[in-house]
Write a protein that binds this DNA or RNA. Structure first.
Lengths: 281, 281
DNA sequence: TTGACTTTAGAACAGGTGTTCCAGAACAAT
DNA sequence: ATTGTTCTGGAACACCTGTTCTAAAGTCAA
């Protein structure tokens, strides 16, 4: 077999090569090819032995298959299938063209100019929002809205960079004519008002690392007192995660040295609206 | 280590267990936990040795980590991460095409459950950011940064829904060790401190319609006194536009009955960073 | 300090990995 | 039929896998 060596780096190319080479392949290799395209996930994760059993061939045949496609061995071929898996897991078809556009845009722009700063923030913000959508389980928003709709008053707590988010939530809830209180610590008073929060109320708490200790303390204290706590934080390992009934985790993959507020703010607005809808029915 | 054996079958459960067990873990295990949540894909595909190198521990530590979570060994834990990967890859969670969602929302306000709320906000947020990028002239950010870098103190003013943006700017400027003052009107005092702002200072003012009268007044007064004013508002007809040296206009195309804060927040962060870069050279 | 205990590093191990190799089967052409 | 070539099965191999085990280091209380 001549089998010119293309060695496609990604799955799409691989499919192309495969369909090109397929007619010239031996029956066995054709069977493997069919299997590979029908079970790309297995190809990504299983071992050669397992796959060979699945196709009904010897492991060596799998290696030959990979080599027929120009790869050194099966492992190298498998890398392509794995690549497909990870790419699919963090890219949505509807948003893909955005990414590409942003990437292209970034590439074209010089990075340091002040015009580039905004472009970068826009790009990061979009990425941030995409990730928000990936990370938040659909039921969480509903669960949070339900908790909140059952509560007498809603308290909102967030300090430092999380304060804008907290403020906005309190503000918007008031616009909905709900009884919402912002726990600012004006005049150094935080814990005193926090102690009035009871099991019939609810607490929305926002904090990212490094988690402001006072905020965490209040959240934990409330949780211990059976107050429903809705948390917005970054991580499952956040101390807030343990102290919350519903916990939104907004991980940040940006390269920036500081946190983007775009995603938390967006979530906050969605939460308020979800609550509004919950109540109006 | 007690470490009751939960042995979560899926990634969500695993995250829960992890956050529960985290506080009781040894420092090394905590590091591994952090790494695992930050690199779930690597956890799914790499070998123990590779991952261990990534975290900076011995392979045995990875195994201990898995066992601490109740699994027999690392392989069993890895299966959970792999499960997540394949699940994500073949169920595109909602949001097939976000444009469709926007259209649907605009046209027939077909509400599609609380999960849909978030998807819509994400979609609107992305649209919002894209528009931000189109609307802001490249030079404006530079111009604003330059004005600000020449000023003695920076005052920031924004009320109601614009307050989060104002607060954030003041907060971030303080982090840059600049002299920034937030003009909140705690205790009903707004105009008094505002009167101290002089031509060598600068004012950043944020307001969308309907423009809070007090805010507009302060901005106009400052402008009349030759204070450099940087405005963030919604369109060219805004009263702030006339009272500003640099004016960012963030029009909103959304059909939502209220304003999205995603774009202004993003602009605010970009502005701060642009200023930071301006100063450091 | 001492002593009990936990945490960590690293070597050792058994089993499984991907790969190679070669003899024989299948096939096509003469 | 026979030859030349391709294809397939299966054993053999070197290596790397995940795991276990032990001893050293670290931690904390008294």
């Amino acid at each position: 077999m001549a089998a010119s060596a293309p060695r496609s780096g990604n799955y799409e190319q691989l499919k192309g090569e495969l369909s090109r080479l397929y007619p010239g392949m031996s029956p066995q290799l054709q069977r493997i090819a069919t299997f590979a395209l029908e079970h790309p996930q297995d190809m990504a994760l299983d071992t050669v032995a397992t796959l060979a059993r699945g196709v009904g061939v010897q492991p060596s045949a799998m290696v030959r298959f990979a080599q027929a496609l120009g790869y050194d061995g099966f492992s190298e071929l498998q890398r392509v299938f794995r690549g497909r898996l990870v790419e699919r897991s963090n890219t949505y078809p509807g948003l893909r063209n955005y990414r590409e556009r942003i990437e292209a845009f970034r590439a074209g722009q010089q990075r340091s100019g002040p015009g580039g700063v905004l472009a970068q923030f826009v790009a990061d913000g979009i990425a941030s929002l995409e990730q928000l959508h990936e990370q938040v389980a659909p039921g969480d928003l509903a669960a949070a809205a339900k908790e909140l709709s059952n509560s007498k008053s809603i308290y909102v707590l967030g300090h430092r960079r999380s304060f804008p988010v907290a403020y906005y939530i309190a503000y918007a809830l008031n616009q909905l004519e709900l009884e919402a209180h912002l726990l600012d610590s004006v005049g150094g008073m935080l814990k005193e008002p926090a102690r009035q929060i009871g099991p019939k109320d609810a607490l929305i708490v926002i904090s990212f690392k490094n988690y402001t200790p006072e905020v965490v303390e209040v959240a934990q204290a409330c949780h211990a007192r059976k107050v429903p706590v809705i948390a917005i934080t970054d991580n499952a390992l956040s101390p807030l995660a343990r102290a919350a009934r519903v916990c939104f985790q907004i991980e940040e993959k940006t390269s920036k040295p500081f946190r983007m507020l775009v995603a938390p703010m967006c979530l906050a607005q969605a939460l308020v609206v979800a609550l509004g809808e919950q109540i109006s029915k």
